[in-house]
Design a protein around this nucleic acid. Structure first.
Length: 492
RNA sequence: GGUCGGAUGGCCGAGUGGCUAGGCAGAGGUCUGCAAAACCUUCUACACCGGUUCGAAUCCGGUUCCGACCUCCA
């Protein structure tokens, strides 16, 4: 292998060579979804990024433990809310148990994510199943003097922490700016009067009477602060210092910054070595927001049932589309861009299907070895999937030319080309050939029969009949193509 | 307002001091009864203004525009 994997570490704001703490083992953590609603586009990018990383690390021979949590302790509903637990609130509206909501949307999340051919994580812990771990961590932080209790709530003492540690390093913020930015409005917000400093954040919150999801703790009945769950679960399953922690850029501050502070306050060192952050998704150039009425659920994307979508886009089209952009760039969804991805993926898929039928020659006019190195080089350069895909398209051109005998390749090169192409397509990028349905064989037989009839018509120069067969089949979603060696067909 | 990131051809998107990114769309051609597919060829580019340099889309400064975060919550 010519180069080593390099990842952009947000923590140091630079590209760094990836060195596992304890090779060949790698531990990685992704902040998972809050399961109080149907999964939308924004829920897909993190898992897809991590899926690529997970697959690639395993491909490189690492033994990876991948932890992706389910946040099932919701808190506030949204910015206009009044302090109820997010999940509990919805539960009351729907007259069901909170865990029923959690169950429903966890399943919805899995269903949608599975369609993207994303591998399941090694461990998928739930926040509600780790309350004790969270309490223990809060205790540890209090013992170390970085948190204080007020009226049954526990807050992290940011100023105290900032005296000893570099608070704000991850998100590039200075504590002075944060203090200066604390305006009047903040004081009006719930719980602010209990804090010593507006920047302090809750580790444990006292639960009100109506609050449904609550637990006993040394500080009374309450529920954990948001940030602590990831710290508690990642340290439990990956250790107090692990390799990779990832999430969306929107989580950089305050969530990840707080995780670092909590872990450092509790364990005396940062939680992990590499921080990866994927950029956000926009739709027609605008961010996805309820107020803009442009939020798209994953199921809506797959069914096409949304006012901004011209048609349905398959899960793999969507995955491929996301992979055509680098994970640290924003990616803009539009019908035009999605259909471009759809056609591009088809081009790759067609090439894969041709791969096994290629004939080798004695000589080779293709630099397969260098091409393979380019592919790895692209992946090693901070998982540059768009570049890797560009190289796959280069190979598509070769495959097509070899197929039409315009280019020669010898047996060894063909084998290498085929193996490498398939490895990247299936194993590393996690793509699949789109399912053409279970009746495939029967359809093939039927279409072959019609093609024979059409061939007879053509022999008799009965063009009207030949065209009728072709056109009617096209209306049924079967495209006929006449080639030198007879006709072939493709299902749409 | 603060912090950070971005602005590439009709669309999407890599790249980076001198060498074709790639996909989609467009144009011409090969093939074909016609068409499609495939292949070949090809057009459109680096927001704006200065500067550094033999040379800048790439580095530096400024301008404009866009995005994320900057509160409780997730």
């Amino acid at each position: 292998m010519p180069s080593k994997l390099k990842l952009y570490n947000t923590y140091n704001a630079e590209l760094e060579e990836f060195e596992p703490l304890q090779a060949p083992f790698v531990g990685m953590y992704l902040c998972g979804p809050t399961v109080y609603g149907d999964p939308h586009l924004g829920h897909s990018r993190g898992p897809i990024l991590m899926d690529i990383l997970y697959r690639y690390l395993m491909h490189l021979g690492y033994k990876v433990r991948y932890v992706r949590n389910i946040t099932d302790v919701g808190h506030l509903q949204n910015d206009s809310d009044d302090g109820d637990d997010k999940i509990a609130k919805k539960a009351r509206l729907d007259q069901v148990e909170p865990m029923e909501i959690v169950q429903k949307y966890t399943i919805a999340y899995h269903k949608a994510i599975d369609k993207l051919n994303v591998l399941p994580p090694s461990i998928e812990p739930r926040a509600t199943a780790h309350i004790q771990e969270q309490i223990n961590m809060v205790k540890g932080i209090i013992e170390n003097g970085y948190a204080y209790e007020v009226n049954g709530s526990v807050y992290f003492d940011v100023l105290k922490y900032a005296e000893d540690e570099d608070y704000g390093k991850l998100s590039g913020r200075k504590i002075e700016d944060l203090i200066a930015g604390a305006g009047e409005e903040r004081r009006a917000l719930e719980g602010q009067d209990e804090k010593r400093n507006p920047n302090d954040f809750a580790l444990w919150k006292k639960a009100s009477e109506e609050h449904i999801m609550k637990w006993e703790s040394p500080w009374g009945i309450g529920f954990p602060g948001w940030h602590i769950e990831c710290s508690a679960m990642s340290s439990k399953y990956l250790g107090e210092y692990f390799d990779i922690h990832a999430g969306g850029m929107d989580l950089l501050f305050p969530h990840h910054e707080s995780e670092i502070a909590q872990s450092t306050a509790c364990f005396k060192h940062t939680p992990c070595k590499y921080w990866l952050h994927n950029n956000m998704i926009t739709i027609n150039g605008q961010k996805m927001a309820k107020s803009l009425n442009n939020g798209i659920l994953l199921e809506e994307m797959f069914s096409g049932d949304h006012h901004l979508l011209d048609k349905a886009y398959s899960p793999l089209t969507m995955k491929f589309f996301l992979l055509m952009a680098h994970y640290r760039s924003t990616v803009d969804f539009s019908n035009e861009a999605l259909s471009a991805a759809e056609k591009g993926l088809k081009r790759l898929s067609n090439a894969i299907e041709k791969l096994d039928e290629l004939k080798s020659s004695d000589q080779s006019e293709v630099a397969v070895e260098a091409w393979k190195e380019n592919l790895y080089e692209a992946m090693n350069n901070d998982l540059n999937t768009p570049k890797a895909i560009a190289f796959l398209f280069e190979a598509v051109k070769w495959i097509n030319e070899i197929s039409s005998s315009k280019l020669k390749i010898n047996e060894d090169d063909l084998k290498l080309l085929s193996e490498t192409f398939k490895t990247f397509f299936f194993d590393i990028l996690g793509l699949k050939l789109e399912d053409e349905g279970s009746d495939k064989e029967r359809i093939e037989g039927l279409v072959n029969l019609l093609m024979e009839l059409r061939q007879d018509a053509k022999t008799e120069k009965n063009w009207a009949m030949a065209d009728k067969i072709r056109d009617d089949l096209k209306n049924l979603g079967v495209d006929l193509m006449d080639g030198k060696e007879g006709s072939s067909f493709k299902l749409n």
